[in-house]
Simulated scan of single mutants.
Amino acid sequence: MIAKLTRIRDLSLSLLAERFSTASVELDYGAATVRVRSDLRAFVCDFQRVYGAFVLPEPVPFADFHTQMCSGKGLRAFLRPQSRFLIDGMQPFDPFPREQALPHFEWGVNWSFAQRFNQHVLLHAGALALGGQAVIMAAPPGSGKSTLTAAMMLRGFRLLSDEFGVLCPRTGRLWPMLKPLALKNRSIDVIRDYAEEAILGPVYKGTRKGDVAHLAPTDDSIDARRLPAHPRLVVFPSFREGAPLTTRRLPAEDAFARLAFNSFNYGILGETSFNAVADVIDSCPAFALEYSRFDEAVESLRAMLAELTAAREAA
């Protein structure tokens, strides 16, 4: 039997592959559990690199999502080997090249969350915490949000999620949806040079989103994946080469529009989403942040969060 607290990196590749082949790999992301099955050996190898710190428990009777990574069908499976992502036995989108099976899995799971996880408000935002106090970071693609999120995690912030700010409408707290961070193009080398301890998976060249590599979450973030955090600060970051660090307080109505209408299920949840996001904006100051130096931006956000936390405790 495998010990209950065994980490994925501690298993031999052959034993991990056996677990995958019998659909007995459950990933506890915090807010949701995903069961994975696969017979793709290269996928298992890449997976172990970026999910190495995740705990692999004994098989559990329930999972929120049941997924499978499998080979392509027919003649093309031999001429141009492919991977297919299945959710509950259904294939929601076209196959990928087999060598891109890991990013295929990551995008498939993200799609599944966005489509089917509607008990919470899903903000399209990164979320990190110090203690139990969280920063929500929302920005459009190309703004440097994922790179700044990675830098913050590597400088001591607890990662909740890079992609999904999982906001509980009942309690107003943010739950972790802890997955590897997808870095694209130039960000890959930036983070590799930023921290020697960063664990990066393979670089997948020429995917549908350019060159992609995945950054493994830190052990501390994974071990705290069942701990929610209270939103305390909303930030809309933007990277600009050579720019000095600037912060600008945003009016509440502007911050609400930016955050609410960039969520995955705002329209589906309607009034529930409106009230949950309005509560966040009502209780958290929101800032536009422009930066070019990562450590400067990280320390500025750390100081802002500490100041807000101290003010709240003193009130």
Rank of each mutant, 00 (worst) to 15 (best):
D46R: 02
G52I: 02
L75Y: 01
M90S: 15
A63L: 08
P61F: 11
G52M: 06
L40H: 02
R41P: 02
P57H: 15
E58Y: 01
A53C: 09
P97L: 10
F85P: 00
A77Y: 03
G74S: 12
A63N: 14
Q68N: 14
V34M: 09
D46L: 06
T67V: 03
G72M: 01
P61Y: 08
F43G: 10
Q91N: 07
P57D: 12
P81F: 05
Q68T: 13
R41Y: 09
Y51G: 03
I87H: 10
P97N: 03
T33P: 11
G89E: 05
G89M: 10
G72H: 01
F62E: 04
P61S: 11
F96E: 05
R37P: 00
V60K: 09
A77H: 01
A32N: 10
T33V: 15
F78D: 08
P92G: 07
A53W: 09
M69S: 14
P61K: 12
A42V: 05
Q68W: 02
R76N: 08
R49P: 13
V55F: 03
R35K: 14
L102R: 00
L79G: 13
V34T: 15
V55N: 06
D64T: 13
R35E: 12
R84F: 08
D94C: 04
D94F: 06
Q82T: 01
S38G: 04
F54I: 13
P81Q: 03
Y51H: 09
S71R: 12
V50M: 10
M69G: 11
M90I: 15
V60I: 08
G52P: 10
T67E: 05
Q82V: 01
Q48A: 06
A77R: 01
P59I: 01
Y51P: 01
F93N: 00
A101S: 04
L86M: 14
V60F: 03
R84H: 12
E58R: 10
P92Q: 05
L102N: 00
A101G: 00
P95M: 13
D39F: 07
D88G: 09
P95L: 12
Y51F: 14
R98A: 13
P59N: 06
L86H: 06
P97R: 07
F65V: 04
G72D: 00
S71L: 13
G52D: 11
S38H: 08
D39E: 15
G89T: 11
M69Q: 05
F47W: 01
P92F: 02
D39W: 07
Q82R: 10
F65T: 00
A77F: 01
G89W: 12
V36T: 12
L56W: 09
T67P: 05
P57I: 13
R37N: 05
F54M: 05
L40A: 04
